[in-house]
Design a protein around this nucleic acid. Sequence first.
DNA 1: CTGAAAGCGCTTACAG
DNA 2: CTGAAAGCGCTTACAG
Lengths: 366, 366
Amino acid sequence: MNFSFSVLFDETFNLFFMRSSCMSRSRVTIKDVAKLAEVSIATVSNVINGTGRVSLDTQRKVEQAIGELDFAPSASARNLKDKKSSLIAVIVPLLEKGRLQDNPFYWHLVRGIEESARDEKLHVILVGIGPDESFSFIREQHLDGLIFVGAFEDTEVVESVLRLNVPCVFMDSLIDNSDFYQVSLDDELGGYIGTKHLLSLGHERIVLLTGLLKKDGVNYCRWQGYRRALEEAGVPYRPELVYEEPTSSLGGYRAASRIGAKGGGVTAVFALSDMVAIGLIKGLHDLGIQVPRDMSIVGFDDDERARYCIPALTTVRQDIVQKGRTAVRLLTAQIERDHSVERQVTLGVELVPRQSTAPLAARVKD
Amino acid sequence: MNFSFSVLFDETFNLFFMRSSCMSRSRVTIKDVAKLAEVSIATVSNVINGTGRVSLDTQRKVEQAIGELDFAPSASARNLKDKKSSLIAVIVPLLEKGRLQDNPFYWHLVRGIEESARDEKLHVILVGIGPDESFSFIREQHLDGLIFVGAFEDTEVVESVLRLNVPCVFMDSLIDNSDFYQVSLDDELGGYIGTKHLLSLGHERIVLLTGLLKKDGVNYCRWQGYRRALEEAGVPYRPELVYEEPTSSLGGYRAASRIGAKGGGVTAVFALSDMVAIGLIKGLHDLGIQVPRDMSIVGFDDDERARYCIPALTTVRQDIVQKGRTAVRLLTAQIERDHSVERQVTLGVELVPRQSTAPLAARVKD
DNA sequence: CTGAAAGCGCTTACAG
DNA sequence: CTGAAAGCGCTTACAG
């Protein structure tokens, strides 16, 4: 009897021991620190936050106790009082398959955001959302702010986000409301300079290879720039030269045959994403159409791959990392109610001429 | 007097009003729901969590109240009790500049992780860490788990993470300890099949273009596969053909002149990243060296760009999104103490022959 | 300069 | 089946 009891006891003990050594997380609390430093928890709190008045002596005692116990204050407890979490979310649209977009564009965006957020002691949570997503997590987690990429004003999702009344920055969203914080690109200018570059090389039949052309969207603005450039040059706008295709390399690849078809007289293409341009070049290549001899191509973004593509891609450059950093700047201003910061930032674009564009004359000579 | 008092009062009122309408977030609590549904907060809690016994009638009342008030339970309050946060972190090494690595590889990883995490009702927080980073946030935020990418066993950071005793999955880390949860690739096999492919085409002087060759690291294993293939084929291993270069397109580009130099007799290159391979092809192209006529190239990863590269890149394929999904699977198993799940998963690789490799004979004929 | 105490919004035994 | 109450770990007036 005694023996079996002892065994039972030992098992219980072991179980307890294992649980306490494996499961326990963050056991040391402000109370432990207070005890060790022989002060009240209020004082510990004051030392941690630099609030109130604390004598240098107690401060040192407390700091040593914190160090000794390796104390890390619980964010949950803190948030419960403050209603803030030091968490921001980047909300990115999902592909149909329920996965984040595969354009590495987003990665560079996130890189910029993460870097700036880190500087601000904020953490970045990455959220993909589908069309019928619930946003309850934003309130549940007490998110301090949101960066919303590629949203449209009239959408259900935007409506529900706005109702939450949480600091929010829209990116590449072109919502026509100057009350909202937005960072975007001078897309119209991008469309303009890319087109103008081709026009200046003598091209007139220029295909615009775009993604979804939604009113006031990014592509829509670029399309407007395209039209403006044509108009300025006195070249008639032909709607049949605007191809709406999926924004993917495959989309570009598939567009190649349509573009390269004889009789169309197309001599240049402006693809509104490097991703698409690269697929297009490959598609043309497989059809025996050489770039830039037979066809000039301009991309958009200036991915790293634009530079290493063969031929190197002429493109409209945007600084995506900078875009992410700007979004965080606007967001923190909004969180801290710093009204001196502008609400709308439009970043610049720049033409980067490389090898995928050539004068039309060169073709004639051949 | 009365007048000025009234003005003051109005101002105060306005301020109050503005604050309450702009700042207030998530005001409705479980108490409000309880009041509306005419039950206790315990009952509301039980309904929300499906715990305890609740009559169908009260359940409906509570659910309606929740809907009416659009109630979202506070994660902080919940976490404070549960010591869990439904948050996991993906920890990615930083570049020297304090920014996340630019390899889009990470994006695909994150895509896989985010998708799976969403299925598990977990949120993903993305963290870049430098060499002397503090990990206090892991305890502060009560993170439920960690996915650690590209760590090395002996590192300070790994040590401190392990001390935290938080569920953790190491990825591409090759820590030699079977107690740890790890997902990795069959890197040795990858190195082997890539090399073997080139050998089978008749190449013998094969440059291995690798990133940092750290003991037991990813590249190290691939290098071992390279050696095994050579040995099997009876081709002597030449250390001078192993080039350690930065894992970037620029690294590949710069390596081109060294590789293409006359006299070396190099006829093929195995680059351990598509990123590097693409830079290399461009570099060779700029030197007038044609791929695959003059030089065969094999990459690693099978990025999207491998397919659209000119010539399309022969490469060793890995499913990066799947890798991310696997990591989440191991992590949730660990969080839920489901010991039926394996601790180590090694994912497969596959050779994807495309156009950047050709028989050596073809060259001789030229 | 320091501390006792209330309260943030939940969950969880424990009574009834 | 339902509720009163304690407690999670902090912060913040408020006394002293």
